[in-house]
Design a protein around this nucleic acid. Structure first.
Lengths: 216, 216
DNA sequence: TCCGATACATTCACGATTGTATGTATTTTT
DNA sequence: AAAAATACATACAATCGTGAATGTATCGGA
């Protein structure tokens, strides 16, 4: 083989990233060799070492332009000025689940991200994940704080606590779904739990059988 | 070296398991060689291959008698006949967090279990994890169902939904804590979120500012 | 059109691990 | 007390993956 066009070179680079994504997801990052990735992409290891320094570099390049779940959630949240922040976050969360459920690439990326062993050079990705999570938490906490100011959030939920509960719930749900082979309907089960959770966040909850406003 | 007593042999076996636990936790399962484990235990690879068939066998033996979080939670739940199942689960969850926070071995085991790549021969552990999670869910769901029958659970929480939310919340919390280097106080933050969550599960929640029983 | 840079393929040298085979000093058994 | 099994250590062969070095056909620019 010989030199290709810049466009063709970019194709093989993309092909390598796609191949890595599929194989990393199928059999784990640690056990995959660059030879396998090259073969899956229809090239040799020479191409891999041309485009990437090594496996860690290829691994990190995977996430440079990959769609992350928290970004799906946070981008609309940041700019929006909704009258009911709780309803907004609720809808955004369900939207993110729907998006994830229908996008195999997002599923693979997020599975690799949450299920691989972050050590040594790979630790950079862990660091970036942590920063994303922290940004997400700040955003959520601010939304819940705004809901609190507007009297929508139940008094039993400090906004930081509510945000943490929401984030852990969402993450636990997604990890469960991805890790154990998507054995339940993500959108259906996820939605029902999220709906119930946000109903619990609101403070217009009424004890059953007892009239709120007894006749004077 | 030569043959040791049965008791001494059992000691070296334990030593190998302990060494593997520490090194797996420190630098990941995939990147650790049997040589490193043997060295950490003060023996050679010969001892490793005498006691275990290979790395996968050693890996699985790690979890055969290891303390799992769900077992900490479930064992007391199964036999107990508490008048308030919600309070019981709440206390057990906080107790499990406290136990985990004070037990480095549990932390290592659970970190390895949740952060390693389950592939090939290691998949058996994933399968067993899944079964444990399912058993846990059944137990929780039954406790929430009992709470529902006794009128303790809020009507907005179907017991299956409540159980799922609790489990995902708890798992998300623990994974966050372990994965990102225990950067917050597990018991303190975890307790406050769990307390708030269980307060939301109960249906004796009252809208603020409105008297429940207005004077007739 | 010619030349240097590019985009790979091919080859090679090396270390790291693995599994096994063998050696051997004890321990246990008989 | 001799024999057999045990609990390792040591030595060895074979594989696998990496990284770098080298080859080379083509592309883009002067």
């Amino acid at each position: 083989m010989a030199r290709r066009t810049k466009a063709e070179a970019e194709e093989t680079r993309r092909g390598l990233l796609d191949a890595a994504e599929r194989i990393f997801h199928a059999k784990g990052v640690a056990t995959t060799s660059l030879e396998e990735i090259a073969a899956e992409a229809g090239v040799t290891r020479g191409a891999v070492y041309w485009h990437f320094a090594n496996k860690a570099d290829l691994f990190m390049a995977l996430f440079d332009d990959a769609p992350l779940i928290h970004d799906d959630l946070l981008a609309p949240l940041a700019l929006s000025e909704h009258p009911d922040p709780l309803a907004l976050v609720e809808e955004l969360a369900i939207g993110a689940l729907t998006l994830l459920a229908g996008d195999a690439r997002r599923q693979r990326i997020y599975t690799i991200l949450t299920l691989c062993e972050y050590r040594d050079e790979f630790g950079v990705v862990l660091q970036r994940t942590l920063e994303t999570m922290d940004r997400a938490h700040a955003q959520f906490a601010s939304a819940f704080a705004e809901a609190d100011r507007r009297g929508i959030l139940a008094p039993s939920w400090p906004h930081g606590t509510a945000a943490a509960a929401f984030q852990w719930l969402l993450h636990g749900l997604i990890v469960d779904w991805l890790k154990f082979g998507r054995r339940f309907d993500l959108v259906e089960r996820g939605s029902s739990v999220i709906r119930a959770q946000f109903q619990a966040y609101r403070h217009r909850c009424v004890p059953a059988g007892i009239p709120v406003l007894a006749p004077a």
